[in-house]
Nucleic acid binder design. Structure first.
Lengths: 268, 268
DNA sequence: AGCCGCTGTGAAAAATCGGTGAAAAATAGA
DNA sequence: TCTATTTTTCACCGATTTTTCACAGCGGCT
């Protein structure tokens, strides 16, 4: 939900823009629009709003009720509370001293002339641009890629695979990680669950030479995977047993296909 | 010094704006203005420019020489090399599909209509706003020009690399500094930790010819780095040993990727 | 029972990977 | 231009991964 904080004293602009702003899809969710008619009302609203739930973007008119500075006082209040909030000016006075002040003095993110062709659209485009810019700032570090299925977690960054919180290791050497091919294979199985995959389909997805990747190899990798799971299940062949009962990594009828069926889901 | 990268095919606009852009005080120092007349020339210029000395801001015209996409191809090239470079469009077609594309598809920082009152001034104000925004972003990430990871410090000004306070030297000659490529490579590894990097990814990030930078070279540079660390660890092969135990610079058994894992984290 | 085809298995062969030194090629500096 | 340095290539080795092979168990079918 994009929340927009808008201060505008002239009702005809409100009539013109509010339907567009409410309807426009900024982030896939419906928007919340807060409209204030006076600078003073805006400042009160700011004071009353929780510091931890700032609006996503603010729209201000620089000149309101005959006062050139009205918008700027609101800007100052906004900046004081939420220094990183993008502020966009909507004004009838582009190319003037007001625009200069907004951009230079008051660190406006943007300044939009109300009198221009297709303003409503332009406004939406520029709000989107401001939102994107703001998210860039915060996202910098983020982006964690994970594939998840029940007790199984595949970290696509480090390629570690976890089962019930423990790391799946190479069954032929418990100090080494799971080998690349079994790992990728598991990922494909999990991702295409509940659809089974034949050897040919796997070869295709992993970009392996279809001539080389035989059904026998596939079986071998499946064995490796089951043993890796077994190793985590401390005991002996617990996971393999599970597979025989139709959960985990199970065969699927013809053409030598296998299928990932998240265990415990149904028979728990 | 604000360096401006400007692509414009019509000389009357160049005549109109260049004096203003040269004279305007963006950051207290004289500006450097690079003007290209064609998209192709611009792409060449980009390719030839050092990745570590990007321009401060780019000005593009979306439509050049009758081609609506010309500016966008330049934009793509710029973004690929310098993802955080602010790009401002200067266009005769505001409020149109071109503006939408620029702002939404091509992540333009701003879009300025050439035909408006007081354009030269508006342009300067908005460049300043873009520069301010960009500096905000960088302040956020790397306050100082130092990359840090545990006992490792990379000073991006002098390009010195320190490990446990000692400077990493060239293993083939202890009186010389670490060679450029291993140094940059280390930086990329540290920055993208805990994500492994394949040879191709490294080539891409360091802007090397992907044809030339083979996995064999990558291995060689890794060797150089490990030895550089070893040299600091006074003794013999201490760091290399660490790597074998899964810390420091470790392989990542797939597609010849390596990964920086800050040592000492667990087994300290 | 006897004969399939399908899976699971261990062991061994084959291919690949990662580390290495040495040398060739490219690049930078004087 | 010539030299010093960096970067890439090459050939080799041991370790690891992947594939192949041969066989066993388990139904279903005639």
């Amino acid at each position: 939900m994009a929340s927009i904080f808008w201060v505008e004293d002239q009702s005809h602009w409100i009539k013109k823009f509010s339907p567009v702003l409410e309807r426009e899809d900024f982030d896939g969710k419906p928007n919340s629009l807060t409209i204030l008619n006076f600078a003073e009302a805006a400042r009160q609203k700011i004071a009353l709003t929780d510091k931890d739930s700032p609006p996503d973007v603010a729209l201000l008119d620089a000149r309101m009720n005959g006062n050139d500075q009205a918008g700027f006082t609101v800007s100052t209040a906004l900046r004081k509370k939420w220094p990183r909030l993008p502020i966009i000016y909507l004004s009838e006075h582009s190319g003037t001293e007001i625009e200069r002040e907004a951009l230079e003095q008051f660190s406006a993110q943007d300044f939009i002339a109300k009198h221009q062709h297709n303003v409503e659209q332009v406004l939406c485009w520029r709000i989107k641009a401001a939102l994107r810019q703001a998210s860039l700032d915060t996202d910098l570090t983020a982006t964690v890629n994970v594939v998840n299925s029940g007790d199984l977690t595949i970290d696509l960054n480090t390629w570690n695979v976890y089962w019930k919180g423990q790391r799946l290791m190479n069954p032929s050497n418990a100090r080494r990680p799971l080998a690349p091919t079994p790992r990728k294979l598991l990922r494909e199985l999990v991702q295409s669950s509940p659809r089974p995959l034949t050897a040919i389909q796997i070869a295709d997805r992993l970009d392996l030479d279809p001539e080389k990747f035989s059904y026998a190899s596939y079986r071998q990798h499946i064995k490796t995977l089951r043993r890796a799971f077994d190793a985590v299940e401390d005991g002996e062949g617990r996971f393999t047993e599970l597979c025989n009962n139709g959960e985990g990594i199970v065969t699927f009828g013809d053409e030598g296909a296998y299928l990932w069926k998240p265990p415990g889901g149904k028979s728990a």
